[in-house]
Design a protein around this nucleic acid. Structure first.
Length: 288
DNA sequence: CTGTGTTCCTGTTCGC
DNA sequence: TGCGAACAGGAACACA
């Protein structure tokens, strides 16, 4: 699930429970995440203070007093919940109060409990010394932050000009721009009125300079991400914010998961196609 | 190097 | 209601 707006929402939800607090204890109940959680994981975390909680693309980065950085990724189905007294505030299965898939639990010095739940276990956690963060393979190849000032039409055009893929594939590529996923790529392309099937290189001229499509696309990306963050992200299925409340942005989807429904802006119908193995939703009559 | 398909895993939804 | 198939927000990896 979690794309940039959801991860940012998680970060904001976890910050009050984690920043400035010491990790009194950490329980790893299932080491088999995307990669096995390292053997020294608990030892390196116990007794350390979280000095700050940041985000890079879809990664959460917890700065620790030990000099390590805890890198966390939610994968497809990961979520965090903040609770007290060693209990999560909200359960993944709220009715059954099930703790299945609660793989990692942080017990903080302020009494907060931070629980990582991930049914599909595509998420990951990894400790890296702060000094080696720049060489970290997970982060190294990431493209620009889409909400940063440095991300503009010129930069996007430069990244797309040599691409031989569709716009959908290019925007999904974390090396081009970091943090978009299937939902927000579809939504940004819709807002920019650009077809997901259009060749990515057509947002640049022969010299790699941005054209009006690149300008519209960058504007649409920033707009949709900012709106989604304001709404607390999207809540599909059981997904919730760290405090258990639901994000609202799914109500603002214009095309995502709306196959067969009317386009909000023309008389067309939202269509679903498959590109590089993933569903794409778009309006063929207003996205060109 | 570039682009595409497969794979990890569990849960939900859909058609019969 | 049951039951198998299809599908789901990601991204590393193998391969052409």
């Amino acid at each position: 699930m979690p794309e940039l707006p959801e991860v940012e929402t998680v970060r904001r939800g976890l910050a009050p429970a984690m920043e400035g607090a010491r990790i009194e204890n950490v329980e790893v109940r299932h080491r088999g995440l995307r990669w096995p959680i390292a053997k020294d994981f608990e030892k390196r975390l116990k007794g350390k203070t979280v000095e700050g909680l940041g985000r890079r693309a879809k990664y959460l980065l917890a700065d620790l007093s030990s000099g390590d950085v805890l890198i966390m990724h939610l994968g497809m189905s990961g979520s965090f919940r903040v609770g007290k007294d060693a209990k999560p505030g909200v359960y993944y299965h709220e009715k059954s109060k099930s703790t299945a898939h609660d793989h990692v639990v942080f017990h903080m010095s302020n009494g907060a409990t931070v629980t990582f739940n991930d049914p599909r276990r595509f998420g990951s956690m990894k400790l890296v010394p702060r000094g080696k963060l720049e060489q970290e393979p997970l982060l190294r190849a990431l493209g620009p932050e889409p909400l940063g000032n440095e991300f503009d039409a010129a930069m996007l055009a430069r990244a797309c000009t040599a691409k031989k893929t569709s716009l959908k594939a290019a925007l999904s590529d974390q090396r081009v721009v970091a943090g978009l996923g299937n939902i927000y790529v579809c939504e940004a392309l819709y807002r920019a009125r650009l077809s997901p099937k259009r060749q990515a290189s057509t947002i640049a001229d022969r010299n790699g300079r941005p054209n009006e499509r690149a300008v519209a696309l960058v504007e649409a990306i920033k707009l949709v991400l900012n709106d989604a963050i304001k709404a607390g992200g999207s809540s599909l299925r059981d997904h919730r914010r760290a405090d258990g409340s639901l994000g609202d942005f799914q109500h603002n989807f214009q095309v995502y998961d709306r196959e067969g429904q009317p386009c909000p802006h023309c008389k067309g119908t939202v269509k679903r196609i498959v590109q590089t193995g993933r569903s794409t939703f778009y309006c063929p009559s207003c996205q060109k």
